[in-house]
Design a protein around this nucleic acid. Structure first.
Lengths: 140, 140
DNA sequence: GAAAATTGTAAGGTAAACCTAACACATTGT
DNA sequence: ACAATGTGTTAGGTTTACCTTACAATTTTC
């Protein structure tokens, strides 16, 4: 089995997911540039992802996610978004800092916490006006 | 320099901090048991912490934090508490899950996010009654 | 105070994730 | 078309943090 992905591999599929979603023809070397690692590291990582059947990849062609890879990437990216939105909308953290924190936390936070955070942000946004009357000090 | 601690070393000083605060005479082997690692790993980690002047340690005696070590541990532990309290009080996450998540996130979250989260939890607790009238769906 | 148990450390090993250098192979530009 | 550029892989190396085994040093217990 060995079915859980390391933080590193999650970053690889997340980047592949976001790039290909935009129709980009992503090759290994592009991934290396985006992630700031060597082509050699990408080569190793991609062969792990291929052997886990999360991506399809032939040298010099565009990387694509398999169905399972896409599902996996989507899970990670959704966590990222829940975190980012919570940081931005609820805590008023600047956008880029919110993303940076989300990028690291998305790999380790539990599904239950993410799901509660998502509901909370939704409710908070809905009742923001009313809440803000009371919560002066979290407005910074 | 090399002044930032790895997650691993942060866990070591945090455990030392919590144990010694309770008056416990903590030795290397105790730490190994608490952290679930080998005595050999503890031995290596402690000599790193000694060389960074964060702890004092002589074989067969109790480990103590230096002033700097104590400050460092306190910083980590405060992050832990801010996270745990937020998960418990705001998101209604069960205590042990809140702690588990805090243990991992405390090493990577930025100071600014922690500080905003702290203010938020404080305000939320203060106005909890009023807020709950509106925020039914984040109540679990 | 000697035997037993505990504690610490050294040596050597593993695994993950990165690196550089070198080379093979493919694509592009003129 | 073939030189220049870009891409991928291999081999070998580094670092970090763990491990086991074995042994040395200390403390505890009878």
């Amino acid at each position: 089995m060995a079915n859980t992905l390391s933080s590193g591999l999650e970053d690889y599929i997340e980047t592949i997911y976001l790039s290909t979603k935009n129709g980009e023809m992503l090759k290994g070397a592009d991934l290396a540039r985006k992630l700031g690692v060597s082509r050699a590291s990408v080569s190793e990582a991609l062969s792990k992802l291929v052997s886990k059947k999360l991506i399809k990849y032939n040298s010099y062609e565009a990387i694509t996610l398999t169905k399972e890879g896409d599902a996996e990437a989507q899970k990670v990216y959704e966590k990222h978004n829940v975190l980012r939105e919570f940081f931005e909308k609820v805590l008023n953290v600047p956008s880029s800092e919110a993303s940076d924190n989300a990028c690291k936390i998305e790999h380790i936070i539990s599904p239950n916490v993410i799901s509660k955070m998502q509901s909370f942000t939704k409710s908070f946004s809905k009742y923001k006006k009313i809440l803000e009357v009371y919560m002066e000090e979290s407005e910074k």
